[in-house]
């Protein structure tokens, strides 16, 4: 059987909110390592990889590797029924086609369980090669979300350019053009407010803002976001999940033919 218990249930609610608009159906992989998922959006332009390590849960039991196919909109509907302070338990018995979500209020005076049907999902796993990125930007996640939102009112694509000056986000459209430059700023009171740019090589890449905006749904999960770029490679936009793991979004660039 498979069972996990997460006292900070709101994390799981936030994780679902971060992926449900990008991916419709996905296989969750349960193993001794943890609870993970890899899925592409329907047009195969973006990929999301989630890992919640087993050590991060208050209780984690996985007798054998298990794949649970779930409709993420339905899963999100169920997790929305959990209170923000609730403890969430996910359970699945071997050989059944359902998963149970159990929600306990902090004072244990309300206990709910929701059973959801699992689905068979034909999904392909992609091998993500280890890469040395030419530029890595760490910045406040709310700032990145703000930039993506602001630029989408100007154009459909963002050009992200890292030079020794800093990182420039540019968009252009019918009404005009916008450039937002963020410089390295490590001298802040709180580390979560820092912007750190590690650059081996200057790199410029173009991306669809629609996907970037979808990735920023993960903003409530982490104060900082890490954006890793190399020429002609998908960008990686990573949000840590409080000491448990991460959500990584990979987005294929737009390339001039």
């Amino acid at each position: 059987m498979f069972e996990l218990r997460l006292v900070q249930g709101s994390l799981l609610k936030k994780v679902l909110e971060s992926i449900k608009d990008l991916v419709n159906d996905a296989n969750f992989d349960c193993s001794s390592t943890g609870f993970s998922l890899q899925a592409m959006d329907s047009s195969h332009v973006a990929l999301v990889a989630l890992l919640l390590r087993s050590e991060g849960f208050e209780h984690y039991r996985c007798d054998r590797n298990l794949t649970m196919g779930m409709n993420l909109a339905n899963m999100a509907k169920m997790l929305k029924c959990a209170g923000n302070d609730d403890i969430i338990t996910i359970k699945a018995d071997d050989g059944t086609d359902t998963v149970t979500f159990m929600f306990e209020s902090p004072s244990q005076d309300k206990i709910s369980d929701f059973e959801m049907k699992l689905m068979d999902i034909d999904s392909e796993h992609l091998g993500i090669p280890e890469a040395e990125y030419e530029a890595i930007i760490r910045m406040p996640s709310a700032e990145f979300a703000r930039i993506c939102r602001d630029l989408s009112s100007i154009g459909d694509t963002v050009v992200i350019s890292v030079t020794k000056e800093g990182v420039r986000f540019s968009a252009r459209g019918d009404i005009g053009a916008a450039n937002i430059v963020c410089r390295q700023n490590a001298t802040v009171d709180k580390p979560e407010d820092a912007t750190i740019i590690e650059m081996q090589e200057p790199v410029t890449l173009t991306f669809a803002l629609r996907y970037m905006n979808s990735f920023t749904k993960a903003t409530p999960l982490a104060e900082q976001v890490t954006i890793s770029m190399s020429s002609d490679l998908p960008v990686v936009v990573e949000y840590k999940v409080a000491g448990m793991g991460y959500i990584r979004y990979y987005l294929a660039p737009k390339i001039e033919e």
Binding site: I128, P234, Y250
Partner: peptide
């Protein structure tokens, strides 16, 4: 303009 590529162009299927 630039052409949108798919992620499967960069990452191989296992």
């Amino acid at each position: 303009g630039p052409k949108q590529h798919t992620i499967t162009k960069f990452f191989q299927k296992l």
